[in-house]
Write a protein that binds this DNA or RNA. Structure first.
Lengths: 338, 338
DNA sequence: ATCGAGAATGTGACCGTTCACATGACAGTC
DNA sequence: GACTGTCATGTGAACGGTCACATTCTCGAT
């Protein structure tokens, strides 16, 4: 009797057509060593002929290995997270893993929790978090997650489970650069306070100013968007009691420079601006933006590497943070006498 | 005997603890109507107590429904595709589906093919393609994909399987705007020629100029990046035989404006520039960019909606393309006598 | 020719869930 | 009080692979 046409061929169909047992087909699929070359070829031919594809669900069921890495990401199209995500995907695929991605739009506890719940119900083998809000850590603690996990862009939290460019150090590089140019009144427009990396950058700002005995001013809490940078700029520039601004990311720096232009101030003539991230567009802002470059792709790749290591029995390693790089362009200049 | 501690609880464990049969637990999980409320509650209590999570692999195996939508995406951090991807993810999750995403870095046939192969081996139920290179269509044809699929951002190809903002129309709006301002010498910096949307925008450019009886000039083939826009700009501006440029996306427009500034030309005083996409930063470029807005999120949501419709037995619908919107800012101005 | 070892291949059970069908409980009807 | 229908729940089989173990084959050494 013909095999039913409306069903995908399974391993037994292949076995029958190749005249071997299903176990032999399984061995071919799994590159078992003790298979006669002729047999292997016959099986492969049949597989190709009938278009057989192993059923991943069945495989996952019996091996209890899903070969899936879960990713919790924030629902934003920002350059950094997106780049990391692509790198993770590529590295995972390379290693024979797939990704199950879910994103959260708001940072509230309930949605973080439900995102993690969702991922865990996929029986993921490992977890990457690219949504570095503070509350994520509480949620992870509470769920007492049993798979290897790693959080990205979360400087200094929970070593062994985090991996990041050293945000604090990057921020200090930015501020030191401004101080080196003679600036003494330096503002900081930061990211949302519940983001770990925003917090770390803010710390760097405060530390560096503190060590230089300069006046620190309470940072303005932003939301990462160019819009915010713009409106904050319009407000701040009503009192020109500063000569430089360190922005928490490139987008806010862009918006801030827009505001400068609008009120007739020159960057860097009147105000110096430094960003953070070095998104590809930053080199073409007007003026091209001085910023802190971090290698998002590298972070993603390392994350996967580390997780796979743990899955093969390794221990979580306390990664030394990656050092960012100061990229000097044209948005910063030596302070001029007013 | 205690259940083994190192194994996740399964449906039979729950059944035993709740004093019911495994089928009853299954009914509770699947919201079967004929369950006594008291029984349901007892089962739910046990589930909560032992932290039971249904095994998706087993479920997928027996129902032969993976509840997974495959996404083939291009490996780029561009605003548009990323936004669509997030929208797809959210819509899919809402409907109880998960995503299996794979991305291709290059547009060559082999990597497209292997990306599709990979997705199909996940036994996906539907497919979304956000990597609208021309060759993707050949690959889809050749694999004679049997699941519902839809390609995004691929104006005019294969109606019923594509969904997009009307790129050609958007391009015409952009060019018409420039013509309305008195420009007669208008250049076009396009995206890579093997991208369907780049091609469609180019067609729009050519059509609109043709109808206005204006000189069309062969478009410059770019790569979507600000870098390209910049270097192309430097080159083009050596001969100032044009007064306006329509760029295939906002990034290239940014780079081009950078080049203008560098050679001492004013935008829009000397040259008018129009972009495409309206990425959030575009409003804060200097000058703020006139561009064509398309709703990437809407596209993603509609794609999922349509695919789910097909999965429930509906027919592929030839979607009418979404109309984009011209956003006039400060990078375009009436042409001035030279 | 016999034996044994290792290579090559086959058989039965199982992973955790849902499906189809069987059974038991209970109320309403005559 | 037996009969019927409906609701609630239980039982066996199946999904498509892999694992552990059993069996057969092959071939050189004795």
């Amino acid at each position: 009797m013909e095999p039913q046409r409306n069903r995908a061929p399974n391993i037994r169909d292949v076995a029958r057509l190749a005249g071997v047992s299903y176990q032999t087909v399984s061995r071919v699929l799994n590159d078992s060593p003790s298979i006669r070359p002729a047999t292997r070829q016959r099986v492969l031919d049949v597989i190709d002929e009938v278009g057989y594809r192993p059923n991943q669900a069945a495989r996952a069921l019996v091996t209890s290995r899903s070969r899936t890495i879960g990713v919790l990401s924030s629902q934003s199209a920002h350059y950094g997270p997106t780049t990391s995500l692509h790198a993770i995907e590529a590295a995972a695929r390379e290693a024979g893993y797939r990704l199950s991605v879910t994103s959260i739009s708001t940072g509230d506890y309930a949605s973080i929790r439900s995102g993690l719940d969702y991922l865990l119900s996929q029986s993921i083998e490992a977890l990457v978090v690219i949504a570095p809000q503070v509350r994520v850590f509480d949620a992870i603690q509470e769920l007492s997650i049993s798979v290897p996990f790693i959080t990205l862009e979360s400087t200094g939290r929970d070593p062994g489970h985090s991996l990041s460019v050293d945000q604090t150090r990057g921020a200090r590089m930015a501020v030191r650069h401004l101080i080196g140019l003679g600036h003494t009144e330096i503002l900081h427009i930061s990211g949302p306070q519940d983001w770990i990396e925003a917090e770390a950058r803010m710390q760097g700002y405060l530390q560096e100013l503190g060590e230089a005995d300069l006046r620190t001013r309470s940072p303005i809490l932003g939301d990462w968007t160019a819009h915010f940078g713009y409106y904050a700029g319009l407000e701040l520039l009503r009192f020109r009691d500063f000569t430089a601004v360190f922005c928490g990311n490139d987008q806010m720096a862009l918006g801030f420079m827009h505001a400068c232009r609008e009120v007739g101030l020159s960057v860097p003539g009147d105000i110096s601006v430094v960003g953070f991230d070095d998104m590809p567009e930053a080199a073409h802002f007007l003026p091209p933006l001085t910023t802190i470059r971090q290698d998002f792709g590298e972070i993603g790749r390392r994350a996967v590497q580390q997780l796979l290591g743990e899955l093969q029995g390794g221990q979580p390693i306390a990664n030394e943070p990656i050092v960012p790089e100061l990229v000097i362009r044209s948005s910063t200049a030596r302070v001029t006498a007013r």
